[in-house]
Design a protein around this nucleic acid. Structure first.
Lengths: 365, 365
DNA sequence: TATTCGTGCTTAAACGTTTAATCAGAGACT
DNA sequence: AGTCTCTGATTAAACGTTTAAGCACGAATA
């Protein structure tokens, strides 16, 4: 492929072929009326000159920049790579670039980040909002990825159903006394997951919920969660609503000499990078990020590029959020080695040296 | 703050004040000759109309888009959030936007990703190259973040010295037989770290290196690494060159009933998100991402915006990579609970229930 | 034969900004 | 009084593309 040489624009091609720049534009875009032979000649000349269209100029003329914004509450969130990768992939398949913006800190930062993206003329944005934020109607199409229980959003994983799947899995194994572990009681996502877990475990299961932020507010950051005591109190399963908390639980229990999964089971959420490689590998629930991203991007593009001319008069109504209804994408249960039947009682068989089964044998629902 | 209304450009302000658009431009940029009073009036009118300059138009005219590209080998890499956050922060402080591009897959993908960014007219790019890739001289300033042993790059953490710090830490604790754990033998970063570790451990330490990719090529992905056997063979410390491998080692050892740090020590690299919260919290080495990002962005901007007019004739020389010399940013040793003196021999005190000391008491070098 | 139509191309304006060149007027100098 | 300079503005071109409008010409139609 010819290297993009800087001084090659449409006029250069036009001059080289003795035609007008407009014809070159029409030839390349296939829009106007150009003879097939000329189209071919233009194409040839373009690649010969290493022509690269100026998206900037096109953006100025058409008002569409071909760029989407991605606003994240905190890039440091371990889930972020999955989101960013999926969005970047979906967007770039659709011919769009992705401009990232971190709204770390307070809500004002989020507004500011959105403003910066608007200045840059993005055609639309994907927003993963800060907790409790309601995205106001800004001047461009917006797709919100959050949780179905947040009002007015567009697409999200079905966190509740994911929790329910996990709950049913644990119930089927025989767990009746389960500790649910969350980070913040104010997270809609986590509350949805916990709601699903309880429903999936069924009415005869005894559940308790531990919020890590509350514990840390008392005992300091990174403090032990006292899970060994909980195990002693009869909890046979620890269902965290994020893999990070699950990992924390797993290592704390292992450290206390409580075998997983022989004595207690541990589960997480999100299938983060470490879930398959720890010992025992984590049973977790995965969001289908690719589908979520595809839906979000597709919805955005639908709003940006009106396909069939909307003949009905109400064409300016959709200037705000992309859709009013919510898309719920199913989650996928991934059973690995950290779950098993609850310990039958009696002296716990500490540290039976059960080697990890290879994760190739993962069972997915 | 007045909401940015779409139909407000420089001409609108000019018309409202009865002056020309050029004067408005000069007034706002402070470049031409405009009377102070008029400048004030223009400013007032601008904010009254909610004027937002079109960065697109400015980009077209000036050839500078105010956007930098960030090319990553794999967004799913757990280190990515740190990089992206630091780069985004540094760039946005300098008034630049950040366009991300994932070069996941082969080297062709990386070239393609760079090409897409060039099309979009980025002013410069930060590249974290794929293994073994040499970034060719593309048409815009480039800052490369990799490792000092990669030729021709710009800025990186001093991985070797970081390894040396960790090596000295382990040596000081008394470890003499250490297993070094890496992922891929072809990674410059990992080799640098391992080299530093060996140097830091000193000549009388016995080191062995395990490459996980090799083990997995034989036994399958996610297979046990057989670390219990290594411990039985007398290794007292397991120094991984990434926190992910360290976590894998830690959980495998714990699972096998080998106490960390009473019996063996485990260390990692990068201070990833889970390092402080697992039990025992991981002793690791942190890259100063903020500084690295600042240096990279500053170098880029120096190349993009020539400050003092370069009076010497050789002004086009720096069209390629930003600098020829390499900036090495020191790493920071973070001592947590996963390291301790080697077990003195005799029957190992399996699973002494030593509670985690709170991480507030972290010791940093 | 005169009108209409379709084809293949050109002309010109537009997007919103920056910037070099120009210009009118006022004050300061010779 | 004539020339020069400084100031504060204007004019116009340019960045590279898209696109509506127009134009010339040959073919099909009335």
């Amino acid at each position: 492929m010819a290297l993009p040489r800087p001084g090659s624009n449409m006029s250069a091609i036009a001059a080289a072929l003795g035609v007008s720049a407009a014809t070159v534009s029409n030839a390349l875009s296939g829009k106007g009326r150009v003879s097939p032979e000329l189209i071919e000649k233009v194409r040839a000349k373009a690649s010969e000159l290493g022509y690269v269209p100026s998206l900037t100029a096109r953006a100025l003329r058409t008002g569409r920049a071909g760029v989407l914004g991605l606003v994240l509450p905190d890039i440091a969130n371990p889930l972020f790579p999955q989101i960013a990768q999926a969005i970047e992939n979906a967007a770039s398949n659709a011919g769009y670039g992705v401009l990232i913006a971190d709204s770390r800190g307070d809500i004002a930062k989020q507004t500011e980040a959105i403003g910066r993206l608007l200045e840059r003329g993005v055609d639309g944005m994907v927003i993963v909002p800060r907790r409790g934020t309601r995205i106001a109607d800004i001047g461009c199409p917006v797709a919100v990825i959050d949780t179905p229980s947040t009002p007015g959003n567009t697409v999200s994983a079905d966190h509740w159903e994911g929790g329910a799947q996990m709950g049913r899995h644990l119930a089927a194994l025989g767990h009746r006394k389960v500790l649910l572990i969350g980070t913040s009681a104010f997270s809609n996502v986590q509350n949805d997951r916990i709601g699903g877990l309880k429903a999936g475990l069924g009415p005869d299961a005894e559940c308790d919920t531990m919020w890590i932020e509350k514990v840390e507010a008392v005992s300091g950051e990174g403090c032990p969660l006292g899970l060994a005591d909980k195990a002693a109190a009869g909890f046979t399963a620890f269902a965290a609503v994020s893999d990070l908390s699950a990992l924390r639980a797993l290592t704390e229990l292992q450290r206390a000499g409580i075998g997983v999964p022989e004595m207690v089971s541990v589960t997480g959420f999100d299938d983060l990078i470490w879930s398959p490689v720890v010992t025992p590998a984590l049973t977790t629930v995965r969001m289908d990020m690719a589908t979520i991203a595809d839906l979000a991007i597709a919805a955005l593009i639908r709003a940006i590029e009106p396909e069939g001319e909307a003949e009905n008069g109400a064409e300016e109504i959709s200037a705000g959020n992309v859709t009013s209804e919510t898309d719920r994408v199913p989650m996928q249960l991934i059973v690995r080695q950290s779950t098993g039947a609850p310990h039958a009682g009696g002296a716990p068989n500490l540290h039976a040296r059960t080697p990890n089964k290879p994760t190739a044998g993962e069972v997915t629902s």
